[in-house]
């Protein structure tokens, strides 16, 4: 308090001399309760598992070995490539990519439409699109599950109007997971695209149409390069959380469609109880995400340089 009251010298903002003290709590809280834990998790991925959770403090590559190789039930057979976990990762990446694509297909026209409305209407439209995001993710996913069930309202509706002859089985398919992910993260796609389209100078489009380009050419050749960064940002923002998603695949995907999130969860909350393997899987997921973010950061840096 004394330090806070003491007046600052000339030549600096009032808060500059205090900056380290001001940032310190954030450093401590996140450094101690997140950065340190992630480092510890890295260490754990190289330890020996204790049955039913926990670790034995002995160095071991077993977790990573288990991820890649199958050595039989007792670990004495010659190693073969273990496809089980690789498949989970590939499936997760595919699902996240499909969800991103879905978000882009619906999100771009939506963002574009909203950004081209008169300014006083834009806020209301954005509000409409973002409200569901503020509803608890679990509740949204459960609602989606309820809607998509074989005997759920969607099928009943379609049957009643004779659109389909027999119920569609959407639940427990990869499509259901994609729909769930789309539902979870759509605003992350709409908002950055909206921001770039809103800043876009539409006289450029007018100039292009004036020079005989049709509208779709204008969209592709003139607008896309300008709003591209928004699309990339939106895609990363949807892809990254989708990759590690837990609720949508768990509730909508059924046993055959589980993703990395469920695999990790199983090691801690389920029956597998293999902490080093869970840590190793988390490390691999984290590396994937960091790579995606790194690519994004480089793109942003390049953008800013131009």
């Amino acid at each position: 308090m004394n330090r806070f009251r003491r007046s600052h010298g000339p030549g600096v903002g009032a808060f500059d001399p205090l900056k380290y003290w001001l940032i310190l709590p954030a450093w401590l809280v996140i450094g101690f309760f997140l950065l340190a834990p992630v480092c510890l998790m890295f260490v754990f991925s190289f330890l020996t598992k204790e049955f039913r959770g926990g670790v034995i403090w002995e160095f071991s590559l077993a977790a990573y070995d288990q991820f890649l190789f199958d050595r039989g039930l007792f670990g004495d057979e010659p190693p073969r490539i273990q496809w089980t976990y690789i498949t989970v990762f590939v499936r997760s990446i595919t699902q996240a990519a499909m969800a991103t694509l879905l978000c882009l297909l619906i999100g771009f026209p939506t963002a574009f439409y909203i950004a081209t409305r008169p300014p006083q209407l834009r806020a209301a439209w954005l509000f409409l699109v973002t409200v569901p995001y503020w509803v608890n993710l679990l509740i949204r996913t459960v609602s989606m599950k309820f809607l998509l069930r074989d005997t759920g309202p969607l099928n009943e509706f379609l049957l009643a109007f004779g659109v389909i002859g027999e119920p569609l089985s959407i639940i427990n398919t990869s499509l259901a997971v994609q729909l769930g992910l789309f539902y979870s993260y759509l605003p992350f796609m709409v908002l950055p695209i909206y921001a770039t389209v809103e800043r876009y100078d539409f006289t450029l489009s007018e100039a292009a149409t004036d020079l005989y380009a049709d509208k779709w050419t204008v969209l592709r050749r003139i607008m896309l390069p300008v709003v591209g960064p928004g699309i990339v940002a939106g895609s990363i923002l949807v892809f990254v959380p989708s990759l590690g998603a837990f609720l949508a695949p768990n509730l909508l995907g059924g046993a055959k469609n589980f993703m990395i999130g469920s695999l990790i969860d199983e090691q801690f909350n389920g029956n597998a109880g293999n902490w080093p393997f869970g840590s190793a899987t988390s490390m691999i997921l984290l590396s994937l995400v960091l790579m995606a973010l790194f690519v994004y950061a480089r793109q942003v840096a390049r953008q800013e340089r131009n």
């Binding site: 007046s7 600052h8 010298g9 000339p10 030549g11 600096v12």
Partner: peptide, 23 residues
């Protein structure tokens, strides 16, 4: 007093302002 001089001094009615903050 929003910036600090690199060299030299500023006097206000003969009083050196060097270490005085703006307030």
């Amino acid at each position: 007093g929003f910036e600090a001089t690199t060299e030299g001094e500023i006097l206000l009615f003969g009083k050196d302002l060097r270490n005085l903050p703006p307030n």
